[in-house]
């Protein structure tokens, strides 16, 4: 049943390729604003590249969260899913997995390209990819809570960043400094350990909270 849901959601996502590419394009546009706004000087750009790429990734993940439950909410299938015999948090996990595969994982592949454009030092590429792989699931998981809370609202799009961004701050801090540590040639194992631990925490809390959020939003 859940596998069928996963297949269906992935199929739906790949059918509307525009929605799929939007976060990626947004990511690239945001990252290229910084050389224009700050300076094209490679040394300066290299020193802020880690932060710029990670802020861009946060915003790109945030942008696509709105779509996590929206389609299913509008055609009424979300209500049916909440009535399934399987626990609602498993359904949420499937949705999160789809969001991550569609909007989170591609960021990890395109980020090195942006790193090149922004003059990221060689040592920074490995931690950049690793931190994106390890932390984008956290972004999708925490985002599911916000998406669940705002699913029934007309003006949910503006509300979501306010709800979710403060929760993203620990990810931002540790991921960006992991890249910075890689640039300076020191060990970034501790950063990865923290990102992994935060992923474990959100993996426990977020599906529960998001399922509760969906119940609240659909209770009307």
């Amino acid at each position: 049943m859940l596998i069928a849901l996963l297949k269906r959601d992935l199929l739906l996502a790949f059918r509307s390729r525009g929605d799929l590419l939007n976060p990626l394009m947004f990511f690239m546009v945001v990252a290229s604003l910084f050389p224009l706004a700050v300076s094209p000087d490679p040394a300066l750009l290299g020193s802020i590249a880690a932060g710029v790429i990670w802020v861009g990734a946060l915003l790109a993940a945030l942008l696509s969260l709105d779509l996590m439950f929206k389609g299913d909410y509008e055609d009424g299938s979300l209500e049916q899913m909440l009535l399934m015999p399987q626990p609602a948090m498993l359904m949420v996990l499937v949705k999160v997995l789809v969001h991550w595969l569609v909007a989170g994982l591609p960021l990890a592949f395109i980020a090195p390209l942006l790193g090149l454009m922004l003059g990221l030092a060689d040592g920074g590429f490995m931690p950049l990819i690793l931190s994106l792989l390890l932390a984008t699931p956290t972004l999708s998981l925490l985002g599911a809570i916000g998406a669940g809370l705002t699913v029934g609202l007309r003006k949910g799009g503006m509300l979501m960043p306010l709800l979710i961004l403060p929760l993203y701050i620990p990810v931002l801090i540790f991921a960006a400094s992991a890249v910075q540590a890689g640039v300076q040639g020191t060990s970034y194992l501790g950063h990865m350990a923290f990102l992994g631990a935060y992923l474990a925490l959100t993996l426990v809390v977020a599906p529960l909270a998001a399922a509760a959020a969906l119940r609240i939003s659909l209770a009307r």
């Binding site: 809570i145 809370l149 709800l163 403060p166 929760l167 620990p170 925490l201 809390v205 909270a209 509760a212 959020a213 609240i216 939003s217 209770a219």
Partner: peptide, 13 residues
């Protein structure tokens, strides 16, 4: 209910 849920998640964080 929604605000309560958000406050709980926030306080865990």
């Amino acid at each position: 209910k929604a605000a309560a849920l958000l406050a709980i998640v926030g306080s865990i964080n």
